[in-house]
Design a protein around this nucleic acid. Structure first.
Lengths: 149, 149
DNA sequence: TTACCTGCAAAGGGTTTGCACTTTG
DNA sequence: CAAAGTGCAAACCCTTTGCAGGTAA
């Protein structure tokens, strides 16, 4: 009914898709979350506001949104997918192996690598993921204490 | 029986593990492959030399080798794991969305990012993956031709 | 109105696990 | 000989799909 909705509807329509209550809600939750939810976590949050949305719809919507370029799927160490609403600046991830915390960071160096690769190998890069893992400051401290104790 | 075997056995022993014919073979195949095999492809190759090795053993061995730091698991766009024997120089991957081809490349820039992150956030990075995807030179050409045709 | 979307439940594909047997050290 | 590893098949988990009923445009 409002302007936001019209914009969103147009975006879906442009992709040959329809705007439904479920899709609007899923995108909304994804955008107001700080990212990196897996499908089930997202499903839980969504169900809080619309109890009978199915997990299947979550997966289907994520595929649609990914296709529309509004959501990105990441493989953050874990063996299942994590999803995140696309923002303006590209950013990358560090995942703590101790507590699971994810730190986002920017890294202009990646663009340089991409440029070089394009020049040297003639490839066209459409997507770049830099995933670091290790231990965050807090977990490192804990480890040290554990060793002492 | 030979020296290589002793070295390898020592490596396994050091990790509280035993050297078995299956493990030796799996590592061997992995090391002489050009990397990026998934578990099933690896299983196929291994079976060529030892027909009754099970897929379960392949998975269990991969876990052991990963744990020992001799093998790395990658998520290369596809939704299942790809494994590769660890070599000296770190290297990263570009996966072509058109033909599936994987191009490896080095990128010293990553080390720089890691250093910066350590300094700024205090994290200790133990593992870094830079995964690019897009279209290789050949597939780009094919696309262009397809548009013209 | 009709093509698209949903919920449900069942199927799928990659990976892990329980168990009885075999092998390593 | 005890502990660890293997093969087999069943279990598991995340994700996808078929279908009948609902909904956007």
């Amino acid at each position: 009914m409002n302007k936001q909705d019209d914009v969103l509807r147009a975006a879906f329509h442009g992709a040959g898709r329809r705007l439904t209550a479920q899709r609007r809600l899923i995108l909304e939750v994804l955008e107001e979350s700080e990212g990196h939810l897996d499908a089930e976590a997202l499903h839980d949050r969504v169900k809080a506001r619309a109890p009978n949305i199915s997990l299947a719809t979550v997966y289907r919507t994520l595929a649609v949104l990914e296709d529309m370029g509004r959501v990105e799927k990441h493989s953050l160490g874990e063996d299942h997918g994590h999803y995140e609403a696309v923002r303006d600046r590209p950013h990358y991830h560090f995942a703590c192996l101790g507590c699971g915390k994810v730190i986002e960071f920017d890294a202009p160096e990646v663009a340089r690598v991409v440029r070089r690769l394009n020049k040297e190998k003639g490839v066209q890069v459409t997507d770049a993921h830099l995933n670091l893992s290790g231990y965050c400051a807090r977990c490192r401290k804990k480890q040290d204490e554990g060793m002492r104790g």
